[in-house]
Nucleic acid binder design. Structure first.
Length: 481
RNA sequence: GUCCCCAUCGUCUAGUCCGGCCAAGGACACCGCCCUUUCACGGCGGCGACGGGGGUUCAAAUCCCCCUGGGGACGCCA
């Protein structure tokens, strides 16, 4: 017998207009890169098709789930700008439904009670591995008279067909066939009465009307079991699509070893959500040669057809590049607002103002993250310690008098503008033979280092008073050495 | 070990379904040059891939098979 998801008869338009996707993370960790992309694909597909996107928290692992982590996942979703149309649903609130359906399966003999203990199961698994076999449940409680389990600690297992096969019609990979003989009798309800993942996911997806189950291909092997469950429960099947996982830069499964994998860690490092979204969407999906995508654009052009099949490696460099792109092109007023907490971390108090925006404008082209921007913005707010090497090279004794002359000339300027400063400097240089290199010394005196935005921009933002003050101060300091 | 998936530059990928337009295109990184008051931005150029072997065909990155490599799953985790 071959089980199949038969949706081919449904007209394309009908499928399009009624798409329901979901993201179902378990609150046993933060929202990480991989999870975020899964959410993104589902969210984008729903948006693209005018469908619905549901958020569901899979909290049936009472050992590891915490409300704080559930909160953190929600925060991550919000930061990335992914809103959900329904939920978040929590599975812990749906226990009665899970038990009722399990009882039904039990009554129909599609499931049975198993009294094997975890210890026994472990031992058998090890033994099977030692023998070189696939470690599966051996089915010894399958035909136990129901009375045997009476009063004993037991789990409810699904009675998987012993022969035949199930084929998964995967949206991205085509048909994948699994022999039932390869599957074992999975646990539906644990001995403490809590349901397991493979079971609840089916009930939830079915009862919530999910039409497209789009998830990482680490779930592909679970799918035949779930299809069998759908059929036993009498539910109609959604369409399944398994996209490749994201691997660490070293090609192994993503984990803490790979450094910052939590999405929110990137916010703290000064990344913009649009950069993260853009990076994530291009990892495993493409649209010709296009690299830059706004969210609005994605809502129009994101398609399932362009999702690839091979696993991708997480590449922090490209994410950084994309972030630099957005730092550079996003509205400076917004950057200014976002920058404030980063400045605060350095002990710099700033408030939104046109001046702050002008600071940002000078730094947009040379900052790849908000963190970098805050670092290079420091001299606008307070004098920095002068880099000793820069001082040695540019703050030479003969420059002191030049600084004083410039300070005086600047003070006398009717207007402290780029053009006025430029011609003032040129005049002073010309007066001394025209070979004097004056820009770097001024830059060092003003910013404490040799790298900064255009000198005139810096001076305009700093303001005449501060420029004159720093120049005079530098002159005095040089002379006093 | 068993089963499942995957395979184009170091990385993300276009091209593969409908074989010729591909002496394989774009992006990141790297290198060089130009622009330039520094650092950046930008522009131009360079380096760099169809994993191997068999088929099929007039023709294969594209279709088939095997091998190899990588990943995943095998829980009273999700």
């Amino acid at each position: 017998m071959i089980n199949s998801q038969n949706t081919a008869h449904i007209p394309k338009e009908a499928q399009m207009s009624s798409v329901v996707t979901r993201f179902a993370p378990s609150p046993t960790g933060y929202l990480h890169i991989g999870g975020a992309r899964t959410a993104l694909f589902n969210w984008l597909y729903a948006r693209r098709t005018g469908g619905k996107f549901i958020l569901r928290i899979e909290d049936t692992d009472k050992e590891r789930s915490t409300p704080e982590l559930a909160r953190a996942i929600l925060d991550g979703m919000s930061w990335l700008g992914m809103g959900w149309d329904e939920g978040p649903y929590f599975q812990t609130g749906r226990m009665e439904l899970y038990r009722r359906e399990a009882d039904r399966l039990l009554r129909e003999a599609k499931a049975y009670r198993c009294v094997c203990t975890p210890e026994e199961l472990d031992a058998r698994r090890e033994a099977a591995k030692a023998r070189g076999e696939k470690p599966r449940y051996d089915g010894r409680c399958r035909n136990l008279p129901p009375a045997t389990a009476e009063g004993k600690r037991s789990v409810i297992r699904f009675r998987t067909p012993e022969s035949g096969q199930t084929v998964v019609h995967d949206l991205f990979r085509g048909d994948v066939t699994f022999e039932h003989a390869e599957l074992d009798d999975l646990v539906l309800i644990r001995s403490d009465g809590l349901p397991t993942y493979n079971y609840v996911v089916v009930i939830d997806d079915a009862t919530m009307g999910i039409t497209h189950v789009l998830r990482g291909d680490d779930h592909l092997n679970n799918t035949p079991k779930q299809i069998l469950l759908y059929e036993s429960l009498g539910y109609s099947l959604p369409r399944f699509g398994h996209f490749p996982m994201i691997l660490g830069p070293d090609g192994t499964r993503l984990s803490k070893r790979h450094g910052a994998m939590s999405v929110m860690a990137y916010e703290e490092m000064g990344y913009l959500p649009e950069a993260m979204v853009n990076y994530l969407v291009r990892l495993g999906w493409s649209h010709g040669d296009q690299e830059i995508f706004s969210v609005d654009e994605l809502k129009k052009c994101f398609t399932l057809e362009n999702i690839g099949k091979s696993a991708g490696k997480f590449n922090p460099e490209k994410l950084l590049h994309l972030n630099a792109h957005y730092i550079k092109t996003v509205d400076p007023e917004r950057i200014a607002r976002l920058l404030i907490p980063f400045l605060a971390r350095k002990g710099i108090e700033a408030t939104p103002s046109p001046w702050l925006v002008s600071v940002v404008r000078t730094l947009q082209e040379r900052s790849r993250t908000l963190l970098e921007m805050a670092d290079s913005a420091e001299y606008y707010f307070r004098e920095k310690e002068t880099d000793p090497k820069a001082a040695a090279k540019f703050l030479t004794p003969e420059i002191a008098t030049v600084f004083e002359e410039i300070a005086a000339a600047f003070s006398a300027l009717p207007e402290f503008s780029h053009a006025a400063m430029d011609s003032t400097l040129n005049a002073i240089v010309a007066k001394r033979g025209g070979t004097l290199k004056i820009h770097q010394p001024i830059r060092v005196a003003l910013t404490g280092g040799t790298a900064s935005p255009g000198l005139f921009e810096v001076m305009e933002v700093l303001g005449r008073e501060e420029v004159v003050r720093r120049l005079s101060k530098a002159a005095k300091r040089i002379s006093s050495v």
